[in-house]
Write a protein that binds this DNA or RNA. Structure first.
Length: 649
RNA sequence: GCCGGCGUGGCGCAGUCCGGUAGCGCAACCGACUUGUAAUCGGUAGGUCGUCGGUUCGAAUCCGACCGCCGGCUCCA
């Protein structure tokens, strides 16, 4: 069993395996001390319980990636002396380092940088840690403006990057004459990095502020073993294969004609059909949930958005106004809430009507900055499945809980199964309303969230200006998380619009408003489902459910009759009567991800039984057409996620 | 908006570095074949090379601006 000598000469036995710090050539090792991740060179006494970090754990990977980031920065400095260092933290699957490089670095340079990194790995340079006082740190950092700024923030709340708030000393890591301000910990030497590769290059503002200079950010990924790295790269390929923008074109679902403008989509017949099915089912569920259906226009006079506060807070996110002859300004609506509020206010409301739930597939327009539009997930024109619920304070808690239950039930019907909740609290600067209101609203949301038996994570300061919110996060088929529904509690807009209802005491009371969108936007939800299913929509959502492929021209008439039968049963059927080979027709059906296809020739028509081919390529012979139709109708009606198994039907 | 990359028929690409007036595959259309579970063969048509301007005898190619797309940053009511 390997042993480790601590600075005070105590000997610690190490566990089996190959932890990051299983050897200690130069006094630094990543270790967990009494549960906290630290450097062994700082162990104050032998009393502390020491547990070396294993690269198989999150902490171990963190250490590994951070050390790889250091080697990256060292390599860039070696290639281009005069490089100024920013920060180099770890991220979900790897790391990055922000650098001001005295050369225009392009993607071609990544290979060169990586080669230099491998040189440094081969040199197996020990990482040596040193703690110094603030003045000494500043002296060492002459010529490094960004690191200097970090040290100047020592001991203040402004601490950033590699420095902990409140610290009075700075730590450096040195190897082979190159050193960097860094909190650590690190692997013992540069030869102990795992499998890594550089992945991307981009610009990033110093400290994330667009007023600051922009640095070059180099991204990489690092893993304990080559197998892990390969698996990660494969996951990335899989995500690329599922990209809804590619599938949208390949499957003829939607497009973004340049003539219309950035972030403005058109849905083609097949995409439009999927969308219609999504909407129809949502409508049905909302009807059952006692929502009232309303409609509102896409534009409004300026005054409405002044009252609502949107112009005050989000003018830069709205399309510029259209000015009419009389000087009146009209805006495209960025939200539906003010319209629903006016519907509420159209007459005096009684407590007997509450909760009043107003629902609309509302088209909204937001002027997203040019660099942020992205496929269907971030657009400038979208349709929200938006509802505003007006309740009394007393009803609020119960309504929130049943709303969350409704939300999760609906999302599950679309095939999403793995959720957690995020609770967003009052934003520090952009907020209206009293602290008491915020506290009460946040508490009501917290209670509803906690009743759901799901993980709840806090998002401090992430709420809207008028109230806190819960968002439902869903994990898709390959484990990525997407923000789906948002539920926002609002005490402010009822005040701004002077809403009230007549209570049982025949006095006026102020209602509470709940804003909620379950899909978020239909466009975005469409994108998420497309990626979740990799374009292979379950039968109930598929634009085409069954494709019939006649073998020869003389079969077309009989197959047309079969198609009529299947359509009469409610199935969406395509008939490929093109004059192409059977192999080609099958290939086409497969590429369009048609759930089921049937090749139909003389043999089948004479026998009266058919072979169904699933989009997974599995064939199921000897079935009557009636049986196939009945099974598919059942699969679609159940919104089944699993394809029909004809052997057990 | 910022940094970097990119824009050639519906789609995927070559040609751009070293200016000399566009080429391939798939798709489409026409014809032959009448086909049995992932691509039959032959032919035809389709592009003012994102847009505008500049340099030049001559621009897809060089320069500038704008539009759009991609990867990030910032933002996301």
């Amino acid at each position: 069993m390997p042993q480790l000598r601590l600075p005070d000469a105590t000997t610690v036995e190490l566990p089996q395996g190959e932890p990051v710090g299983s050897a200690l050539p130069a006094g630094t090792i990543a270790a967990r001390i009494d549960g906290e991740l630290r450097d062994l060179s700082f162990v104050p006494s032998a009393d502390a319980a020491v547990e070396p970090i294993d690269v198989g754990t999150d902490d171990g990977l963190h250490v590994l990636r951070h050390s790889t980031a250091h080697v990256l920065a060292q390599a860039v400095c070696r290639l281009w002396p005069g490089t100024k260092l920013g920060i180099g933290p770890t991220i979900a699957d790897g790391f990055y380092y922000d650098l001001a490089i005295p050369k225009h670095v392009s993607a071609d340079d990544l290979a060169k940088i990586e080669a230099t990194m491998r040189e440094i790995v081969a040199e197996d340079q020990p990482f040596v840690r040193e703690d110094v006082e603030r003045d000494e740190a500043l002296r060492r950092l002459i010529g490094q403006p960004f690191k200097t700024e970090i040290v100047e923030g020592l001991g203040t709340d402004e601490a950033a990057g590699d420095v902990v708030a409140g610290a009075q000393t700075a730590s450096f890591y040195r190897n082979d004459g190159w050193e960097d301000l860094c909190l650590g910990p690190h692997v013992p030497s540069s030869g102990r990095l795992g499998a890594f590769t550089l992945t991307a290059l981009s610009g990033a503002y110093w400290r994330g502020d667009e007023k600051n200079p922009q640095l070059t950010r180099i991204y990489g990924t690092a893993w304990a073993t080559q197998e892990d790295l390969d698996a990660y790269l494969q996951r990335r390929e899989e995500a690329e294969r599922r990209d809804h923008r590619k599938l949208g074109a390949d499957l003829d679902l939607f497009s973004f004609p340049e003539e219309i403008g950035s972030g403005l989509a058109v849905f083609h017949p097949r995409g439009g059909l999927v969308r219609k099915i999504m909407e129809d089912y949502s409508r049905r569920r909302h009807e059952e949930g006692n929502y009232e259906f309303v409609n509102s226009p896409h534009i409004s006079k300026r005054n409405l958005f002044e009252t609502s506060g949107h112009l005050e807070w989000y003018a830069e996110g709205m399309f510029p106004p259209m000015e009419l002859d009389g000087g009146t300004e009209y805006y495209l609506k960025p939200m539906n809430c003010p319209f629903h509020i006016l519907i509420y206010r159209a007459r005096t409301r009684s407590y007997r009507e509450l909760p009043l739930r107003l629902f609309e597939f509302g088209g909204v327009y937001r002027y997203e900055k040019s660099g942020v539009v992205h496929g269907l997930t971030r657009v400038r024109g979208m349709t929200q499945d938006d509802a505003h619920i007006f309740t009394t304070r007393e009803q609020m808690g119960e309504e929130l809980q049943s709303l969350l239950t409704f939300t999760l039930s609906l999302l599950r019907d679309y095939g999403l199964e793995d959720f957690y909740l995020e609770l967003s609290t009052k934003p520090e600067e952009k907020a209206v309303g009293s602290d008491d209101d915020w506290d009460e609203a946040t508490e009501a949301l917290r209670q509803a969230a906690n009743a759901m038996d799901l993980d709840v994570v806090m998002d401090i300061g992430g709420g809207a200006f008028y109230g806190p919110k819960i968002s439902v996060q869903a994990r898709d088929a390959i484990g990525r998380t997407w923000q789906m529904s948002t539920i926002q509690l609002d005490f402010q807009l009822p005040n701004r619009f002077d809403l009230y209802y007549a209570g049982a005491d025949s006095k006026r009371h102020r209602p509470i408003m709940i804003h909620r969108a379950l899909f978020g936007s239909i466009e975005r939800f469409f994108a998420v489902l497309t990626e979740h299913y990799a374009g292979a929509f379950p039968l109930w959502l598929a634009p085409e459910q069954l494709r019939l492929l006649p073998v020869a021209d003389r079969n077309v008439e009989a197959v047309t009759e079969l198609a009529r039968t299947a359509r009469a049963a409610g199935l969406r059927v395509e008939l490929d009567d093109s004059k192409r080979s059977v192999g080609k027709k099958i290939r086409d059906a497969q590429l369009m991800k048609s759930p089921y296809s049937i090749v139909i020739g003389d043999r089948d028509l004479e026998a009266g039984t058919f072979t169904v081919r699933g989009r997974d390529g599995v064939e199921m012979p000897g079935l009557t057409f009636d049986r196939i139709v009945t099974a598919l109708v059942a699969e679609a009606d159940e919104r089944s996620l699993a394809p029909t198994d004809f052997t057990v039907v």
